[in-house]
Design a protein around this nucleic acid. Structure first.
Lengths: 370, 370
DNA sequence: GTGAAAGCGCTAACAG
DNA sequence: CTGTTAGCGCTTTCAC
């Protein structure tokens, strides 16, 4: 708890009153540790880099000296001499409104951290708001050598970033499905989640299943959309309408009205995220359409609020934390020149709550379950 | 699935195709720029650090050479020689559930970035999940000299972190009200928001106004709670009940039931955040209490989903982005040894939506005890 | 004005 | 196995 316990040797407020031979108010260096342990600097370096060549006795003394002096290798000096920043970068580009509701980003970061903290890497963040700014961010990361590798999120159709990063010599992992030729993405299976959703609705007797897609330029939007369409067709139905939105609540509401304005409106809608789905519920109720009696609604993400919506939201859950952790593991392996190793992500889950129900006035199969 | 690695030594995606005369595959350094511009390294350094002593002609040539070579000072080398990491740290400790719904964190980070990107600082993030981990994170930041200063969030009652950071010689800014003696906190006026909420309810005729507070150990929980209590009393009412929760939806629902189980239940509840308020609406409806007819509900944060809840949530909005930006500005000023300068944050806003309404039977029951 | 040289604290060859 | 030595790329005196 208390880092500055007075009985600890060398625990003067600042690193000034070092009990051992650390002369001044100067920063404690590897030299001080070496001196205190009676060895050379390289011996200390070797121990702290986990390489052989130091006797057990010396090793012990070094570790103890370091502990007493509260010394840790200076990340800056280490970075310089190893030409490695020991840091990874994440550039986030999001519209302001989405930033604060999107459950992805915080969870992903937490997952990334869960691995990075075990290997001593730091995560450098950059939040940008436009294409140019995003580009500059990567460029700076590379030219200033601030990070050793980056995570690439929200992959776009015909995304130029992988090629740009390759040109910069910056290793990266791609998040999500799709991607380039030489860079295999690490992603959860969005499509499987959507297919589950479609089948669930089909089992409830729905014939007109619509989809509110996310912004068109994203690969994950397209993946979800295609999964919806192909699964609907596979079940012998026609797509029940599509509307393109942009992941915000406002756009979800608008898309819902659009779909419901149709002469033959859908009896169920699958949204590309929970925010839009929740706004969709609100929009439906506003126009007198009851959920789930008249309209079934399915979201995507399972935000913590989903169970508390009225009606509670049926949705698809992804384990974003694990995803982040897997990406971090892979990226660290890459920048250290090792073998990435296979990543094994947990499957998406489908969470049935109250926003879906049997289709009303079913002219459909009466054998539908659930 | 995995990702690409430029692991071929020297080849692969390493940046090489230098447009101009950069000799080898080697990293471009200040020396290359100096040579190309026909000046000394120090001249280049001076230009890039905005100090006088370089002629206009030389200056031009240097800038152009750097542009052609796509050179930017190496952050690691610069950090080492200036003993400054040119980076700030943010340690986030949050329960997993809260992480993905809390609108604070992403917005704050975006605000911080909006300033840091203009001054060339990086933001280093650390997400931790316990007291010890949090402590270690700060300790590592300091001992490894990875960052020049840190943001301290979620200030706790009797928080030891300010003292610990001072002992580590790590500058910091405190977020939120309260705080220590030598470190002035930068915060939005939570209390004002709560007072507005209380007055709004009072104007609607509510007499029994309850509060669902956040975890007790946080300063901001206490600030909100005290604001609620004092404002209620100032208006001549008795506090209409309090329940302590922990900012999660589940706890908000539980607290709501607790309050409503009372023999004389409140007619309005003010929650310490939106998540709990939304869960509270759900809990109320579940037990047949209508919102806002039987119970008015007010949240705090104005998450983007708030307008899409049924009924739309009345809440308090803070400009967290500006807050982050102001904190960044202050912290940068501090680590650069300058004068922080006064921060001027926009006032909190009170957003009235559908979850609050006149107390029931107000006009029908004029004989309510005085 | 400009250029040479000495670090910043660490790592990693290389001798001893 | 241990100690010495030269960098990593930049900043910053200090002579010229």
């Amino acid at each position: 708890m208390n880092a500055i316990s007075p009985d600890e040797p060398g625990a003067g407020a600042t690193a000034s009153a070092s009990p051992a031979g650390a002369p001044r108010d100067r920063r404690i260096t590897i030299g001080d540790v070496a001196a205190r342990a009676g060895v050379s600097k390289s011996a200390v370096s070797f121990v702290f880099n986990g390489r052989p060549g130091v006797g057990e006795g010396a090793r012990e003394r070094i570790l103890e000296a370091a502990r007493e002096l509260e010394w840790r290798p200076d990340a800056r000096a280490r970075a310089l001499s190893r030409s490695r920043a020991q840091a990874l970068g994440l550039v986030i580009r999001r519209e302001p409104e989405l930033l604060s509701t999107d459950p992805f980003f915080p969870q992903f970061v937490a997952g990334v951290e869960s691995h990075l903290s075990t290997v001593g890497y730091a995560l450098v963040l950059q939040v940008v708001d436009g294409e140019q700014a995003e580009h500059d961010a990567y460029s700076r990361f590379a030219h200033e050598a601030r990070v050793d590798g980056v995570f690439l999120t929200d992959l776009r159709i015909e995304d130029e970033r992988p090629a740009e990063l390759a040109a910069l010599g910056m290793p990266c992992v791609l998040l999500g499905s799709g991607g380039g030729e030489d860079t295999a993405p690490i992603g959860l299976d969005d499509a499987a989640g959507i297919r589950r959703a479609v089948r669930h609705l089909h089992a409830l007797g729905h014939q007109r299943i619509a989809h509110v897609a996310g912004a068109d330029r994203y690969v994950h939007s397209r993946v979800r959309r295609e999964a919806w369409e192909s699964e609907v067709r596979r079940l012998g139905l026609e797509p029940g309408g599509i509307a393109v939105a942009d992941f915000t609540g406002a756009s979800g509401a608008r898309a819902t009205h659009e779909l419901l304005d149709h002469p033959e409106p859908p009896t169920a809608i699958i949204y590309a995220n929970d925010i839009m789905a929740i706004a969709g519920i609100s929009a439906a109720i506003d126009r007198g359409v009851r959920v789930p009696q008249d309209l079934s609604i399915i979201g995507f993400d399972d935000i913590p609020l989903a169970p508390y919506i009225i009606p509670p939201l049926t949705t698809v859950r992804q384990d974003v934390f694990q995803w982040g952790s897997a990406c971090a593991r892979t990226l660290v392996a890459i920048v250290e020149g090792g073998e990435p190793g296979a990543v094994d992500l947990p499957p998406v889950e489908f969470i049935v709550r109250g926003s879906t129900g049997p289709v009303r006035g079913q002219d459909a199969a009466p054998e539908v379950g659930e």
